Simulated assay, not measured.
Amino acid sequence: MSDQPIRFPDLSARPHELKVERVMSAPPALLYAALTQGFDIWFAAPGSVLMKPAVNEPFFFETEHAGNRYPHYGRFLRLEPERLVELTWVTGADGTEGAETVVTFQFVHQPRGIRLRLRHAGFPNEAARDRHLVAWPLVLEQLDRRTGTVD
């Protein structure tokens, strides 16, 4: 873990955010591992992930779509095993438009599975937020499919 103090992004000038929820079939330990060290098993291009699950540690990975590569950068802000993952999220023109946003994944235990609550805040505009509002449910479905028992 870094000895540097954690610097949370100032989102006050970028108030656009979204919230998405999904009941997941995977156990919280597996979801936590997928979000902190296993991005390449469910989201990132294999071999592109540079990630150490520790607060204040930076990470990098790429996604690929239609032959194009999309770099993602960030750092972990808060980690609570099997309860919460909070990280910054920076992507290019088709994503956060270079803005350092904050994504929070919260695991809520319920009688049937884990409810994953995602909050993504700090978008520079409504268009960037709306692109992610469409994408995040699909991304969470893929996470569930690759880590859980969803067919």
Rank of each mutant, 00 (worst) to 15 (best):
residue 80 E to V: 11
residue 118 L to I: 10
residue 93 A to D: 15
residue 41 I to T: 15
residue 76 F to R: 01
residue 123 F to E: 05
residue 142 Q to M: 14
residue 135 A to P: 09
residue 93 A to K: 13
residue 6 I to E: 10
residue 65 H to F: 13
residue 77 L to V: 03
residue 116 L to C: 02
residue 27 P to M: 10
residue 124 P to A: 10
residue 108 V to L: 14
residue 146 R to P: 09
residue 64 E to I: 08
residue 98 G to D: 05
residue 13 A to Y: 01
residue 19 K to M: 15
residue 65 H to C: 13
residue 110 Q to G: 14
residue 111 P to N: 01
residue 49 V to S: 08
residue 117 R to A: 15
residue 120 H to Y: 03
residue 95 G to F: 01
residue 114 I to G: 04
residue 56 N to K: 00
residue 17 E to G: 12
residue 32 Y to G: 11
residue 10 D to Q: 01
residue 34 A to W: 06
residue 67 G to A: 08
residue 103 V to Y: 05
residue 129 R to T: 04
residue 145 R to N: 13
residue 148 G to L: 03
residue 38 G to C: 07
residue 128 A to P: 06
residue 38 G to T: 00
residue 58 P to G: 11
residue 33 A to E: 13
residue 90 V to Q: 12
residue 136 W to I: 04
residue 76 F to M: 05
residue 115 R to F: 09
residue 32 Y to E: 03
residue 140 L to K: 02
residue 53 P to K: 02
residue 37 Q to M: 14
residue 126 E to H: 01
residue 129 R to N: 02
residue 20 V to M: 11
residue 30 L to Q: 13
residue 31 L to M: 01
residue 103 V to E: 12
residue 116 L to Q: 07
residue 67 G to N: 08
residue 1 M to K: 10
residue 30 L to P: 08
residue 106 Q to C: 13
residue 103 V to G: 12
residue 16 H to G: 01
residue 101 T to C: 00
residue 34 A to K: 00
residue 55 V to K: 03
residue 41 I to D: 15
residue 75 R to C: 04
residue 80 E to W: 05
residue 18 L to W: 02
residue 124 P to H: 03
residue 15 P to D: 05
residue 6 I to S: 12
residue 4 Q to P: 07
residue 118 L to S: 07
residue 126 E to L: 12
residue 44 A to S: 06
residue 53 P to L: 08
residue 72 H to V: 11
residue 68 N to R: 13
residue 94 D to S: 12
residue 2 S to P: 07
residue 117 R to E: 15
residue 79 L to I: 03
residue 115 R to M: 12
residue 104 T to A: 03
residue 89 W to E: 08
residue 50 L to S: 15
residue 86 E to C: 10
residue 142 Q to W: 00
residue 5 P to S: 02
residue 124 P to K: 01
residue 56 N to Y: 02
residue 143 L to Y: 05
residue 116 L to F: 01
residue 146 R to Q: 15
residue 8 F to A: 14
residue 147 T to C: 14
residue 50 L to W: 00
residue 89 W to C: 05
residue 33 A to C: 00
residue 31 L to D: 08
residue 91 T to Q: 06
residue 140 L to F: 01
residue 55 V to P: 11
residue 106 Q to N: 13
residue 108 V to S: 06
residue 138 L to G: 15
residue 114 I to S: 02
residue 102 V to F: 05
residue 63 T to D: 12
residue 131 R to L: 10
residue 89 W to L: 06
residue 12 S to V: 02
residue 110 Q to T: 06
residue 70 Y to P: 04
residue 63 T to M: 14
residue 122 G to F: 05
residue 121 A to P: 02
